[in-house]
Design a binder for these strands. Structure first.
Lengths: 131, 131
DNA sequence: TTCATTAGTTCTGAAGTAATGAACTATTGA
DNA sequence: TCAATAGTTCATTACTTCAGAACTAATGAA
């Protein structure tokens, strides 16, 4: 099967749950924070490693798909590569302060992590469900 | 096997990812918004229906567990029932503005939903992954 | 044109996670 | 001691996620 066109929801179809879900993964929030911080666009392979951890490109592709389909980023093919831009100003219009608060919290946590374990590669297991 | 004691993480072990994950489910964010809004504590069976949808009590119990173990609420047994309180002021100390922004976005979305479809019971399927 | 390269997507199966009915536990009050 | 209440745990089934392999699509070189 061929490649399907990229899906980008209308801003009105973006949900809080979708945004929180997309950013509840440490790899995705790292990618998103990076894209949102850049002036210039970022292609996918910029993130083949995230916090010193190698991410297989099929996994990366899925992560980008989740960020796109939940309305956090916009991806456009330019020749052979993809350019990703953050949709933060659109989201700001719909959910004021949300993205800023999340990215700020992410920054706080990153700073704490570095302060506690300067060299260790914190694996950040997503949820410790202890079932 | 008997009942295990309830686990509440120290506020320092609460993560942004955990908070976003816990609140990325429509049932859990509805429960949490309700608990955070109340002055008095709320027991679990208050939520046997959430937005006109019946939730089996085993499912509810798991949702409360996820909210507890990600640091969003504190649960205490008082006799036969459980009292749940929000840990929002602790979280505010660690991640300023985060909870307020999320609850505010949730409120915005609720208001829009009601404005669009006044009577329909919006099922709010968590993620439309379209895989 | 044809081939190689680059960048990303899709497929697939294994591993992990979630929803829920049934069975269980713990506390209270009759 | 027993029934009722409130919630937990277990077991099953369904769904989701990860990641290697195969694939697609655009570009540039021969």
């Amino acid at each position: 099967m061929g490649m399907r066109p990229l899906l980008h929801p209308s801003i009105d179809d973006v949900t809080v749950e979708g945004i929180l879900y997309a950013l509840s993964d440490p790899v995705r929030v790292a990618i998103y924070a990076d894209i949102a911080a850049q002036e210039c666009t970022q292609n996918c392979s910029t993130f083949l490693t995230v916090s010193d951890k190698a991410i297989p490109k099929s996994t990366l592709s899925q992560h980008f798909k989740i960020l796109r389909e939940n309305g956090l980023i916009r991806g456009e093919r330019h020749g052979v590569e993809m350019r990703n831009t953050s949709r933060c100003s659109e989201i700001e219009g719909r959910f004021p302060g949300l993205i800023r608060a999340i990215l700020n919290a992410h920054t706080v946590q990153l700073a704490e992590t570095r302060a506690k374990k300067p060299t260790a590669k914190r694996t950040a297991k997503r949820r410790a469900t202890t079932l």
